[in-house]
Every structure is written in C-alpha cells, then in structure tokens.
Design a protein around this nucleic acid. Structure first.
Lengths: 201, 201
DNA sequence: TTGACAAGTGACCTTACGTTCACTATAATG
DNA sequence: CATTATAGTGAACGTAAGGTCACTTGTCAA
C-alpha cells in the first residue's frame, strides 16, 4: 500500500520525464496525475532528484536482469528466415512496449546531463544489441548459416540500422509501420548478402 | 553592430540549449555569457521562445543550404578506398565541428517537444545521409565500383551504423578516437562486401 | 547642434517551482 | 483501548525564472 504509491510515483515520473525531460517536469503535475497533492510525493521521496535517481536505479536494474545475463539470450535461429522472424519479434516488443519506449526517450533526453543515463543509453542504443547479436551470429556461423566473418562487425552492421529505425519510431510514431517494413526489408537484404549460399536466391 | 549581438545571442543559445536543453536554460545565464544583463536580450528577441524559434530557423536554413541542394553533392569516389577516405573526411568534420555537434545535441534534446526539431532531427540523423549516399552509390554502381544492388538500401546500411557512432561521440566524447577507428573499419568491411571483385581481397 | 533611434542597464513584477511543516485521518500494534 | 506509524493534506516559504519598464548612453542623420 505504501510501496504501491512509491512505485506509482516512479511510473508517473517515467512518463513525464520521457515527455518533457527532467527539467521540464514539475512535481505538481506529477502528483496531480496520481491524484495526490504535491507534498504527498515528499512522503516517499525526499526530492525531485531522489525520484530521478530511483527511476534510474530501476531502469538500470531492469536492463540488467533483462539483457545483462548471457543465459537470457534467445536461441540461435535455425535459418536465415528465422533470424528475420526473431528480429521482428524483438523489434515489435521494443517499439510497442510503452515502458521500454519511454525508457529510451528518457535516456535520449538525459544522456548529456547524467553520467549513469549516458552509460545506460550507450548500452540501450548500441552495445547491448551488438553484443547480443554477436553471440547469435557466432552461433549461426558455427551452424553454417552465415558466411564466416567477424561476428562483432556483422552484429554492428545489422543492429545499428535497426536501432536507427527504432529511434525513428520514437520520434515520429506515425511512421512506425513504415519503419517496421523497412527493418524487415533490411533484415532480408542482410541475410541475402551474408547468408551462406543455398539459403537464399 | 546591432545585428552582431543578435547573432551572438543565437550562438550562446545554441551552446546552452545543447548542454542543458531548452527548459534547462535560463536567460540570465545566457545573457551573462555574453556580458549582458537579462533585459538586454529582450531588446533583440521578445521572448525565450522567440530565441528558440530563431535558432531553429537558422539551423533549418543552414542545413538546407549545406545538404539540401543536390548540386552540393561531393564527387562520386573513383575507388572503394576513395569512398572510405571521403567518408572519414565527412565524419571528421561532422564530429569535430562544434556548431554541427551542438546542433545535433539540441535536436536530440528537443525532438519530442518541437515538430520542426523533430523533422530536422530525422534529416540529420537518418534521411539526409541516406539520400546523399544513395546518389553516391548509384554513381559508383554505374562506374562498376559497387556490385549492382538497391542503392537506397545500401546507403541505409552504410550510413546508419556511421550515424550511430557519431551519436556515440556526442554522448561520450572520450570515445571519439575509438569510434572513428570503428567507422573506418566498418567502411572497409562494407567495401569488402559490396565492392565489385578486383578491388579488394 | 539637435533629435531620433538603437543598445544596454537595473529595479521591479508576477508566477511557478521545489521544499517544508503543522496537522489529520487511517490502520496496524501493544 | 490507547498508541504509534503511515499516507496524505493544505498553507506557507524562499527562490529563481521569464518578462516589463523607465531611464541612460552612444551614434548618426538632418
């Protein structure tokens, strides 16, 4: 009950910070969106900055348990087509899950202000995906599905364009469908180029 | 003389907005950084928002004259190696030119708040580069330097990873050298994959 | 020389923000 | 039942922000 409100404050903070940024958010509005009055919030957090830090803690912990452990890796796809399907599933979740999308936005807005946000932003936008697909591509090369090459380079070449289109979805949500289609087209193009002969045209 | 201050206000605004965002910037500090007092600024702009809009106007105009016209296109590289060199030249300018870097940061911070910033952000981060390299790659395919393929798809696959690393430089400037090296490595990998046989190993 | 105007100053106004605090209602605890 | 902790209220405080205005200073044209 007590903890519930504390949690809800973080949810509201995520929403407001992701829309207006830290500096553009005020406690009055935040409290009001929870049906509280301003001072009620201070029963749970001692300051606006404390809310921000708690939210960051949560985002970092969430990222860690979701993407941090290598054993949480999706199974290596059995075919090039399966790689595209896996990709589209992951992208769909990442784009349409409100919480994840808001997390990306917050990190985008606060990356220059807070060192921890900066670090997490790099993981979210770059190294996290690349590391993950480095492992996947290593597995696919061992299975003979992908031509032998530097898996880290391939992972970077594969995930960075996808990440760019995810950012586009965050920025211009009305282009989401278009961006999804482009991701799929890109994935097929990629498998066409790097796939081991016999699996594509 | 009069116009000079008006210009200097925009320069200071670009600097402060790029560091603290629009909401996190105050006119007092901005004025002080120019050796003025707050009210002096209001002799040139009627409000903080007017400064923002003038800055955006300038950024949009600057982008238009620099990247908007197709005749401003760099010459089509004569070899795969020349493509990498051209790329590195362009990236170096884009990363190390303070004004361009600050423009990117501002667009990053304000893309969710201002529709014009949003639009310009997409050009800066995605479509601008892609369009430019679509033309370049078309020319290189005609010259037989690149294997025939969808030039827009190739341009996207080429520019998006580079763009991701430019963002990394903005976020973590201490990684600039590393990022530059990675861009070059990526470019060579790309030409290795898409280059017409005879130009690489 | 004078008048007009542009650039800049400093005091002031209003508002909104983050934060505090004395107080109340509620619910669990001994 | 009395007590104590918890969650929430509403008024108040200090401050910093955006903005205004009467005034001064310097420049240039008539």
């Amino acid at each position: 009950m007590a903890n519930d409100t504390k949690e809800r404050i973080l949810e509201a903070a995520l929403e407001m910070f992701s829309q207006n940024g830290y500096a553009g958010t005020n406690i009055r509005e935040l409290s009001a969106s929870l049906g509280l009055v301003k001072s009620g919030v201070y029963k749970h957090y001692e300051s606006k900055e404390a809310i921000w830090n708690a939210l960051l803690d949560q985002m970092i912990a969430y990222y860690g348990e979701r993407f941090g452990s290598p054993e949480r890796l999706p199974p290596v796809p059995e075919s090039l087509e399966a790689l595209t399907r896996l990709t589209m599933r992951m992208v769909n979740v990442t784009v349409h899950d409100e919480k994840i999308a808001m997390t990306r936005k917050v990190l985008t807005l606060e990356q220059f202000r807070d060192p921890r946000a900066r670090e997490l932003a790099t993981k979210h936008f770059l190294t996290g995906l690349t590391d993950m697909f480095t492992r996947i591509f290593t597995g696919m090369m061992e299975k003979g599905l992908l031509r032998k090459d530097d898996p880290a380079m391939l992972a970077f070449a594969y995930t960075a364009p996808i990440s760019a289109l995810i950012h586009l979805c965050d920025r211009e949500p009305e282009k989401t469908d278009e961006a999804m289609a482009q991701i799929e087209a890109f994935s097929r193009h990629f498998t066409g180029v790097y796939g081991e002969a016999g699996h594509e045209q």
